[in-house]
Amino acid sequence: MKQQMALGSFIFGLSRNFAYSTLQRKSGGGWTNIDILTSKPKSSQTGQDLQGLIIGGKSMYAQAMDRLDELRALQALRVPLPLVDGIGRNWGLWRINNLTENQSLIIDDGTAMVIDWTVELAEFTHA
């Protein structure tokens, strides 16, 4: 089965009719500024920030609503999950920080015909 990415047991991809179309990756360098009253701020290194990912897409019909419920069930476990991309690269452990869905074109039984969604992940470390 082809996949774009697997987060724990959840698979993103066309094979499950839940593919993402955007992936934003954020890596902070751990720099902060300390304000100095009489000059420019002093740069200080506080350690590398956790990486973040925002995965987003547009899905259709009740199946998309079911997939988002699956992701919410994983989020409710409150445990870090392994993230593996479609070429087999292990990205390590990640936590689900936020799930956002915007439903539109809702029919009379409450089914959204179109759902724009995002999943916000943060790297998990053991310190």
Rank of each mutant, 00 (worst) to 15 (best):
Q51N: 14
Q63S: 15
K42R: 14
T22L: 04
I54R: 12
W31T: 09
I54M: 10
G56L: 08
G47N: 07
T46H: 14
A64P: 00
L23S: 06
Q24D: 14
K58C: 08
M60A: 08
G28E: 02
K42L: 09
T46I: 15
K40W: 08
Q48K: 15
K26T: 05
K40G: 11
I55H: 00
L23W: 04
M60T: 07
F18H: 00
L50Q: 11
L50R: 15
P41T: 05
N33I: 06
G47P: 10
L50F: 15
G28I: 03
I54Q: 08
W31H: 12
S59M: 09
G29A: 08
G57E: 00
N33W: 04
Y20P: 01
T22G: 02
Q48M: 14
Q48N: 13
I54V: 14
I36A: 07
I55F: 01
I55Y: 02
A62P: 04
L50H: 13
P41D: 03
T38V: 08
Q51G: 12
P41I: 02
A19S: 07
I36R: 06
W31D: 04
N33H: 08
I54N: 09
D49P: 06
M60E: 02
G52T: 15
G56W: 04
I55V: 10
L53A: 08
I34F: 00
G30M: 01
G29V: 05
Q48H: 14
D35W: 03
G52Y: 09
G47R: 11
L53V: 09
G30F: 04
D35E: 06
K42M: 07
G30D: 02
S21L: 04
G56D: 00
S39T: 03
L53D: 00
M60Q: 06
S27E: 10
S59P: 00
G56Q: 03
G47S: 07
K40R: 14
P41Y: 06
Q24M: 13
F18P: 00
I55N: 00
P41K: 02
T46A: 09
R16H: 11
W31C: 03
I55C: 00
M60R: 07
G28H: 01
S27A: 13
G57C: 02
L53T: 08
W31G: 07
R25W: 08
N33E: 14
Y20W: 08
T22R: 10
I34Q: 04
T38Y: 12
P41R: 03
G30Y: 06
Q45L: 13
T46Y: 11
G29L: 10
